[in-house]
Design a protein around this nucleic acid. Structure first.
Lengths: 186, 186
DNA sequence: TATCTAATTAGATTTATATCAAATTAGATT
DNA sequence: AATCTAATTTGATATAAATCTAATTAGATA
């Protein structure tokens, strides 16, 4: 399984001793006893860690006479890191695409909201889109907020309430202010 | 320490349950009980893992009413992976640069070896450079090897011996042959 | 204030892992 | 064949970690 290999790889690197070995090997190839010496550990301990690193593909070994030299498998390490990375980046791309699609469905050519989405997720995407047009740090009168909303939808009361409900804004004594992005619910 | 954070990050991801959580959160933000339900584990267990993921910067949490929503900190994950990646790539670049510098110091404008480096490491770099000009799989007479070496250095006997010593070539009954790169000592 | 909900902490158990000393193995050299 | 060298395996011990149940906490709501 791909997931198991990834975990084995991450687990192999997620140990101080093994990470030190990786650092040593990123500079030069070394044999077991040399590593043991540099790290102040015994050969059996190093052998144990080298086995794990080898099993997970982080290092490769090469014998010369009685000595076995270990070296970092940089290609493999790079590949593993990239595969985890691409997983996340793919998700991000998909999210952006999905958002754009939903915005396209609910906003007309003039930039006005056709209807308020009833699905929570879609509604949040739309609200986020419009909230992003407000200024962070600026204090708004209720009248100003209403005018702002009327630019893209007639039902300013509902949308104003949604901005508060979903924490895009907060209200204190009739004064509205945009919340920082981290507080937005999405 | 940077190293410790890296290890904490890798250790956080190097566990099947936590990796599953990361996968779940890469799709949507979820609260603890939802995660517990999906993975068939109890809330305390999930809480334990979420703490580790949060401490290592993999996820962030946001409270709404009584429910705490967890979401993947994609920026942070990306940054961590890139930092490990760049460590390795930097090493590679540095190695190439170092080799080029050493070759520049020991080889003149005509491509001839000025002197044989006495430092083992430098000598290996120089020997590797010249050995790479030989054909893999071809059998060479001793005379041919001598001629080949004389192209760039007069002391063919010493260099021929070094080729053998450091396993760039092997000799059998007066016939020389290049070893595959994996056997070269460097 | 009392109660409800979701999360966390405490405490216990089990499983996994890092480490070492001693014994063994694999391969090279004499 | 005998010996030497470096690595590995074995077996033991100690530490760390995952998981659960039960108890507690933090915050929201009635």
């Amino acid at each position: 399984m791909q997931l198991e290999k990834q975990i084995a790889f991450l687990k192999a690197l997620g140990d101080p001793t093994r990470m030190k070995i990786v650092h040593l090997l990123s500079g030069s190839t070394l044999h077991g006893q040399a590593i043991a010496g540099k790290l102040g550990l015994t050969p059996p301990t190093i052998s144990h860690h080298l086995t794990k690193l080898k099993e997970s593909g982080v290092i490769i070994s090469r014998r010369n006479k009685n000595t076995i030299y270990f070296e970092l498998n940089k290609k493999m390490v790079k590949q593993h890191l990239m595969s985890i990375l691409s997983l996340i980046e793919q998700e991000e791309r998909e999210e952006v695409e999905e958002k754009e699609k939903i915005l396209g469905n609910f906003i007309d050519q003039n930039g006005r909201l056709k209807t308020i989405p009833s699905q929570r997720k879609k509604k949040l995407i739309v609200l986020e889109y419009f909230a992003a047009k407000l200024e962070l740090g600026r204090k708004y009168e209720e009248k100003e907020i209403n005018e702002f909303i009327k630019q893209f939808h007639e039902d300013f009361a509902t949308i104003r309430r949604e901005f508060i409900n979903h924490q895009f804004m907060y209200r204190d004594q009739g004064i509205y202010e945009l919340n920082p992005r981290e507080m937005w619910l999405n």
